[in-house]
Design a protein around this nucleic acid. Structure first.
Length: 187
DNA sequence: CTATGGATTCGCT
DNA sequence: GCGAATCCATAGA
């Protein structure tokens, strides 16, 4: 694959990729405004064999980006209102991806606050995270591993903390798979 | 063609 | 705790 530090991790299994994404940073420079978060909550979604995944049933117009190479950004609209960002994983054509559910702001906090209309709870939810980073439908299909894209995936602290796995949220199928991963904050 | 419901968030009670 | 807001892919006639 590519030479990006995370390329190898993302190209493997989606569950492994989800755990490795925790603690990594996502940086965006949408509209010339730099913002950055450290990922603290993610969910793994498999390919056509995962009933809860958008890839279930094969590729279509909406989920085309999911079947691209690992490191591709997949953006979809939720409930007609919010945008949610995913990182495509696995080999091309598999359709697996990791939903970015939450993060802690580390740069551009003022920009995020302006976009969100509040100064707290800036990125503690899928829609909030995408909104804070300025990610929208126009970013669907972007390469997160490139060096000059508006949205990039960067390495984070070597030892981010303890990871806890739970059931996924907001889905009605395959609820039993504990594919939601939360990074426990140490004090 | 029309109908349906979702990987959510926010505001009000 | 509960329901509204609001878009579009997908399913069914």
């Amino acid at each position: 694959m590519g030479d990006h530090p995370l390329a190898r991790a993302l190209g493997g299994g989606v569950v492994e990729a989800a755990r490795l994404l925790l603690g990594r940073r996502v940086r965006s420079e949408v509209g010339g405004l730099p913002t950055e978060v450290i990922l603290t909550e993610v969910e793994a979604y498999g390919g056509a064999d995962d009933p809860a995944s958008h890839a279930f049933g094969g590729p279509g117009r909406r989920n085309a980006a999911m079947f691209g190479p690992a490191g591709t950004l997949y953006v979809y609209r939720s409930y007609g209102i919010h945008w949610c960002a995913n990182v495509v994983t696995g080999p091309p054509g598999e359709g697996s991806a990791v939903l970015l559910r939450g993060g802690v702001p580390t740069a551009g906090t003022e920009t995020m606050a302006a976009r969100r209309g509040r100064t707290d709870h800036l990125a503690d939810g899928p829609g909030k995270l995408a909104a804070a980073l300025g990610i929208g439908g126009e970013h669907d299909g972007l390469d997160l591993l490139g060096e000059e894209g508006p949205v990039r995936l960067l390495p984070g602290p070597a030892s981010p903390g303890e990871i806890r796995s739970t059931a996924r949220v907001g889905i009605s199928r395959a609820v039993e798979r504990p594919w939601r991963f939360v990074l426990l904050v140490r004090d």
